[in-house]
């Protein structure tokens, strides 16, 4: 009974990590499972073998690579999936030419195999030929335009290369395909912020919060966006110390408000009632921004008040400075 319990624990821990890229932990739990319980895993055995194989490739662990390959080969010899794995093993060992040959052969037999096509992207990436990698990704996406994994990969490469407008396009695609995915929405919001679209960025942060209102990234994002848009009109105490080298001074926001409304900079409670409609709409905007900021600060405070530790104290201090 105890053994079964351990098997279940190991299996659970392994499965939790299967979708993350933590080869050290996958190898740790997977190897124990395989060593101790391989005859009791039945159908799951092969999935586990595959994951352990890939983790072993990442870690460079020769013995586990060989063991997993031979175990998989004994059951799936000649299958396309196995051959793709053989290619990946070659990639991990640095034999990019060999891997390329394997993939090309697979594509001759099965030209619609998207997974193998994407290995070419990995080949370029592994050889650090990033320009060709991006080229290939773009061509791939012209043909397989709904492949979200490829869009995501391209977006990440653009971000790391600081091509933010192109990255924004990629993440727009991702939001279009799956607008309920908070990761896509928040990354999109962050990209919008990075490219200066503070209003839109705030909207997407709010959207993420509609889905999950404890999302701290989105809460902070709203505070930052409002700071960029309205600056001192929203924050009782300007948080200039909190953001070194802000890219834009708070007043040069994208809003059309040019009237420098007399709604007092330092008291959040004042709402000026102005005769002209443009002023009132911008004041309404400011009012919403102020209320939103206040509520976001309150939510953040709520979260951090319950957290123990020195880091929570410094966070609460920062929030205090901002007016929580």
């Amino acid at each position: 009974m105890d053994e079964a319990g351990t098997q279940m624990t190991l299996l659970r821990k392994l499965k939790e990590r299967m979708s993350t890229r933590r080869p050290d932990e996958i190898l740790r739990y997977g190897s124990q499972l395989l060593r101790r319980y391989s005859n009791r895993l039945h159908d799951e055995l092969y999935t586990i073998l595959e994951h352990v194989l890939l983790a072993a490739c990442d870690m460079g662990h020769r013995q586990w690579i060989d063991y997993c390959m031979s175990a998989l080969r004994s059951k799936f010899a000649g299958s396309i999936r196995l051959r793709r794995l053989e290619g990946m093993v070659k990639e991990a060992q640095g034999d990019y030419q060999g891997a390329k040959q394997i993939y090309q052969k697979i594509l001759e037999e099965k030209p619609e195999d998207m997974l193998t096509r994407k290995r070419f992207i990995a080949l370029y990436k592994g050889q650090r030929r990033m320009a060709e990698c991006v080229d290939y990704l773009n061509k791939y996406l012209e043909e397989f335009v709904t492949d979200t994994e490829a869009w995501h990969e391209l977006g990440e490469i653009y971000i790391s290369d600081n091509c933010l407008s192109k990255a924004t396009f990629c993440f727009e695609e991702l939001v279009m395909y799956d607008h309920r995915n908070p990761y896509y929405v928040i990354t999109y919001a962050e990209l919008l912020y990075a490219t200066g679209e503070y209003e839109l960025s705030r909207k997407y942060y709010c959207f993420a919060l509609e889905m999950d209102d404890r999302n701290t990234r989105a809460l902070w994002g709203i505070l930052l966006a409002n700071e960029q848009l309205h600056g001192s009109k929203v924050f009782p105490i300007a948080s200039s110390a909190a953001s070194p080298a802000t890219d834009k001074p708070p007043t040069s926001s994208k809003r059309k408000d040019g009237h420098g409304s007399s709604s007092a900079a330092n008291s959040p409670a004042t709402q000026s009632v102005t005769p002209s409609t443009t002023q009132s709409s911008s004041t309404r905007e400011e009012h919403t921004a102020r209320v939103l900021t206040k509520m976001a600060l309150a939510k953040l405070k709520e979260v951090y008040v319950r957290v123990k530790g020195g880091h929570a104290q410094s966070t609460l201090a920062v929030l205090q400075d901002m007016g929580a």
Partner: peptide
């Protein structure tokens, strides 16, 4: 932790993952 029972073995050279070299070794 990972290698009980597998015995000593050779290191894996090359590979495309950078500083996983550090844990690889």
């Amino acid at each position: 932790g990972v290698t009980e029972g597998m015995g000593e073995g050779g290191q894996e050279g090359g590979g495309n993952d950078g500083h996983s070299d550090s844990t690889r070794a």
